[in-house]
Write a protein that binds this DNA or RNA. Structure first.
Lengths: 180, 180
DNA sequence: GCATGCATGTAAGGAGTTACATGATTCA
DNA sequence: TGAATCATGTAACTCCTTACATGCATGC
């Protein structure tokens, strides 16, 4: 049984309660998005395949008047999730266009280098705001892991902002040195 | 003119000297790999397309007996690189399977959580070693930017190792608390 | 003579995003 | 009544990796 990592994200999001595809997407956007994103274009087909494989089971659900299909883990699905969790993680990837531009900045104006850093800093300032907004919820949960991971996100962005400030000062010194 | 980011990596790697596809791949592996990787399967087709678009020019080259095609930036290619460098960076993505497993760890044994963190720590310890190996070369260059970016890589991995150690201690306290 | 590295490429497939499409419901 | 949100899905496309294929050159 070879599943994509995003399939395990779907399974994982059903670990505590049944959810619809729409709710899984919301849960991803409120938690794992910054280190593993998923779009509707993945989630809905994935749910179908997981149901066909017997790892989840969909049931029609009506709350009030609105109808949806909520999925729950089957015993096989829970076992498969656990099996995956117990294997060593493999994938670690970054795609950072800002660092890339900074790397090549000798081929552009010093202002572009500064801009690449400033954009990076703003991205992480914004990210911290979003993460802090969900922090109270995560902190109050009985499950300690999501909060630990959330703290990773916040602290990583704090570190990155600090790095950007140091790099900005360094480039400032550099350009004054060249001007002198 | 809509180019992929990896096309700009190729252009960027030609900013200072002409290189063959093989040499571009080596340069990527020794520098941008950790925040923007590229495979032969991308580089060679990309070089053809860039040549067809007039942004690079390939010339047969023989050093000793070995023959290769080295590419250099055309004026249009240099201009396009510069134009890209001066736009704000957009893409910032992470795919961290270790954080994902840690996030879902309530559905597995406490040992899996510890293992996810330990694997993450080892990955970054290994990465630091690789980056330190290329540090002297980067430091001695007249172009200051690659060294700044390399320092980012080293310091980020150092920070991550520190985070892993803190998380390990926290999980240790947590499990002792539950055992008590 | 053989392994390693240099050097270039293609084909197939997986993973993921984006845009599009549809329709119901809720709230202002 | 109209905008926003809930809810589900598909099609086209891009990007990228992996596996495969080839052949020469170098050094042990």
């Amino acid at each position: 049984m070879e599943l994509s990592t995003t399939a395990y994200v779907v399974l994982g999001m059903l670990r505590e309660q049944p959810r619809s595809g729409y709710e899984i997407k919301q849960a991803v956007d409120n938690s794992t998005r910054f280190f593993w994103a998923a779009s509707y274009g993945q989630i809905y087909p994935e749910l179908k395949q997981l149901a066909a494989a017997g790892l989840v089971k969909g049931e029609p659900h009506s709350q009030g008047e609105r109808k949806s299909t909520v999925y729950r883990l089957t015993a096989a699905g829970r076992k498969e999730l656990r099996r995956w969790l117990e294997r060593e993680p493999k994938t670690f990837e970054m795609r950072d266009e800002g660092l890339l531009k900074l790397f090549f900045s000798v081929a552009a104006s010093p202002e572009s280098a500064a801009q690449s850093i400033a954009t990076k800093r703003r991205y992480h300032e914004n990210k911290i705001e979003q993460l802090r907004a969900i922090e109270p919820l995560a902190k109050s949960s009985a499950d300690p892991y999501p909060y630990i991971v959330l703290r990773h996100g916040i602290e990583l962005s704090e570190w990155t902002i600090g790095w950007c400030e140091r790099a900005e000062r360094e480039l400032g010194r550099e350009s004054r040195r060249r001007a002198a």
